[in-house]
Structure formats: C-alpha cells, structure tokens
Design a protein around this nucleic acid. Structure first.
Lengths: 154, 154
DNA sequence: GTGTAAGTTGAAGTCAACTTCATGTCAAGG
DNA sequence: CCTTGACATGAAGTTGACTTCAACTTACAC
C-alpha cells in the first residue's frame, strides 16, 4: 500500500466529515483513540472512520456522546461493533426513533385539533400540557430532544 | 372577584408549570410582561398564562425563544393571539412538524435497511451520511433539533 | 408587631458539544 | 536548508435556556 495505513488527523477529519478539533475532543472524551508519530502527531487506523460513522449515526438518532460512549463500551471487548452488535444497537435505536416519531405525530395531530377548535385557552391543549416540567431538571440549552420533550404525565 | 386578578410570580409559575426564574428570564428577554406591586414585586395579569402556554407549545414544536419572540411580535398589535393568528401560526408549525417527522421516518427506515444488510461500513448508510456538516456552523450544544439535523445534501 | 414564606436584583454558573486562539513543533517538497 | 502548511496543547469562548447564589426586601397571617 502506498500510504502507510496510518492516517493523519486532517485527512480523517475530511473523510469523516468532522473537524480536526472534534477528533481531539472525542479523544479527550474517550470515544476514539490514535497512535502517535515519532514527532507526537496523531495517526489514526482506518477503523476509526467506521467508529466515527457509528458516532455520527448515533447522534442522528439523538444519542448524546455519553450514551455513545456507553454503547461503545457495552460492546463485548471494546471493539468496533460486529454485525451482531450493530443489529442489537439498531434495535434499541429503532425503538427510540419510534418513540420520537410517535411523540411528534401526537403533537401534530393535537395541533390539527387546535386549528379546528380554535382552542386558545390551551388549558387542555395537546401542544401545551403544563404541570409536568415544573421540576424538570438541571440547566442548559433545551430544544426538543432528551427525548423529544413533552412528557405524557407518567 | 376574591383574588384581585393580579397573580404573583410563584402562582403563575406553578400554574404554568415553569420556574419563577424562567419567568424573570422571559421578561428580560421580552417574552412576557408584568406589572409591579407597591413594593416592587411582579404581578401578572391572567392573560400571561395563555401566553406562557403559547410559548411552551412553540417550544414543543422545536422553536427557539427567539423564534417565539418573532412569532409573538408578528401578531397584528402585539397581543396574545386571536383565533385567526393561532390558526396561521399553527399552519407554520404543522409544516415544521411534518418535516421533522419525515426526517425521523427516513432515518428509521434507513435503520431497518441497515439491520437487514448488516452494513457495517456505513459508507452509504442512511444513518451516517457524512460530507455534509464538515463546515456546519458555530459552537454550542447540538442534539437533533435545528431542525432535526441530518441534512439531505441540498 | 413579628415571624416566615415569597419576592427582588445582578452576576455568575450549568450543560453539551465543540470551536477558537495563542504559541510553538513537525513534516515534506524544492 | 528552508519554507510552508499541517499538527499539538491548554485555556477560554460559544450557544440557548435557564438555574443558582448572595444579600436583601415584601407581604401577609397570627
């Protein structure tokens, strides 16, 4: 092989579609590893590309990096997922996606109802239902996610 | 009426399902207003409850507070929405929800495919598609939202 | 009149996932 | 050998939506 099989950070970044700074960050967070060149520069094995794709996929499903780390750690011997591992994780993610979709659909349908009835009071409005998050938890930004908000009053 | 019609922050917070600190924050951000008692404490008109419900609804649809502010400002004379205004905004939100749902469904279906083919390379995996966000934009937290991630390569 | 719950303010902290910056080192072509 | 571009590091900044804190002040029931 022409190129020695160990890829410098810039190329990995480019091929994986992430910034080099993100790669350093992931390393610090224990999500990926890298060897070093004689001079101390990062050199990645090709397998890191797959791992990065995995990370991205998980993020697309709405997982946090912490959850991704757990998922990766849950793999038998800490390697990149095998076909079976992938299938198992996929099943989990599918459930998650199903839930998220169901939540949004409920919201949308509630919206339709609202349009129909012109309900402005929103007291029992599907879109608004209060009394749940008063003591939600913690600070930080918060759009939909964890997991698409909108608790059903459990 | 027994209670003077002007509600203190604690009660508004409780009834709206948000923390008092959030109400102060919203005020600072120009999302809600309050009168003051002789001693300088906030006293809210009942209509603020509706406004807060509106804000919560918008957030559930995935709008940022800035967008909410714009939406509220876009109302004819800066009041709480009338039935017609509500309908108009609802239409916008519905579109947004439709998009979000479509995105998640695409993701889920891609997942199913992956389970079937056991595609570990993820090169063309629906869940992973790289080469889009390399130069995404800015810092800050980032789960799914704006608007459920996962650009389709426009 | 007094105790206490509830309210006030401005500044600073939090969380996630990175990015940006300053300062300095490495690698490779010419 | 030298220049240029990629890389390294640690600290600090960014974004959004709030929360927490310290130090007081009000409101109201008894």
């Amino acid at each position: 092989m022409r190129s020695s099989d160990l890829i410098p950070i810039g190329e990995v970044a480019h091929r994986a579609g992430v910034a080099p700074s993100a790669l350093r960050f992931y390393e610090k967070e224990g999500l990926v590893e890298a060897q070093r060149s004689a001079g101390g520069q990062r050199r990645y094995a090709r397998s890191v590309l797959r791992r990065l794709a995995f990370i991205r996929a998980a993020q697309n499903v709405g997982l946090s990096l912490e959850e991704v780390r757990d998922a990766l750690a849950s793999l038998p011997d800490g390697r990149t997922p095998t076909s079976a591992d992938w299938a198992r994780l996929s099943r989990t993610w599918r459930t998650r996606l199903d839930d998220q979709i169901a939540g949004l659909v409920a919201l949308r349908d509630g919206l339709t109802t609202c349009i129909g009835c012109g309900c402005l009071s929103l007291r029992r409005c599907q879109l608004s239902n209060p009394d749940d998050r008063a003591a939600s938890s913690g600070a930080g930004a918060r759009y939909l996610p964890p997991s698409l908000r909108r608790r059903e009053r459990p």
